[in-house]
Design a protein around this nucleic acid. Sequence first.
DNA 1: TGATTCCATATCGTGTTACGATATGGAAAG
DNA 2: CTTTCCATATCGTAACACGATATGGAATCA
Lengths: 137, 137
Amino acid sequence: MLIEHDDIQLLAKFRREIRRFLQFSDQAAASVGLQPQQHQLLLQVARAPDGTLITIGYIADVMGLRHNTAVELSKRCELAGLVSRTHDPNDRRCVVLKLTTLGNRALRQLSDVHSRQLRELAPSLIQALTRIRNSTP
Amino acid sequence: MLIEHDDIQLLAKFRREIRRFLQFSDQAAASVGLQPQQHQLLLQVARAPDGTLITIGYIADVMGLRHNTAVELSKRCELAGLVSRTHDPNDRRCVVLKLTTLGNRALRQLSDVHSRQLRELAPSLIQALTRIRNSTP
DNA sequence: TGATTCCATATCGTGTTACGATATGGAAAG
DNA sequence: CTTTCCATATCGTAACACGATATGGAATCA
């Protein structure tokens, strides 16, 4: 009975840690006026390898979203002044996203506090993961 | 320029790993007919220390939700036949949640596949976290 | 070149989840 | 027994995501 519940304990612990981090992250985003997903979009735009055209399709891919969701998200980001949306002159079908100065500034701020917070949460997250990794299948 | 983007790379990598896990989790929940949050509620109900009264307030607390959100979630779980909702005879204001047989079965199934998947994802998650932990503040 | 096919993005309607504001009904304090 | 407090409930609203479908540019081929 108890033994069978071991993995549930481990999983619940891990989820609690993840939730703590995500809630911190959501609140941090809110504190600079961003929605959580807007923050994630900025992060993925900034992180893209040099030379990558950051299109709707690219965002949908790296964020695991359908393209229509990526369209809407990118439009909300544009409306908030975080990114610019222009058409690729080589292929006018494609929309290319770029960080604005505002978007850049917000992302830097968020990255700083996130790094700080994650350095704090990392030990318990690593511990939870290590226990799961070592648990008997 | 490049050095300043280091933490963004690390954070983006970590988020991608988290997203992969959460998307797997959502899909696993869906495969047994549950919504993601229903799964989380079951997990927290099952994980509660013996003797704890699992009330709406308790769920709101451990899941980091407002109580009204917990009310709605628990009602959806009841509607889906995953938990029972009864009033605590000692304090008729409180609603006590218990797993049904169906809820128990679903949670066991989900816990199994989650443990398996997390054992696979753990190394890269741990790696991402370790890098962040060791990065210069 | 013109018709067809394909592809990237856009729009529409819908469902889930979460929240703030507010209401109800039981418990506790005075 | 009334006031106050507390746990839960209800209502309206917003973000987010999706499926289905539309549009308009690119590519292909007859």
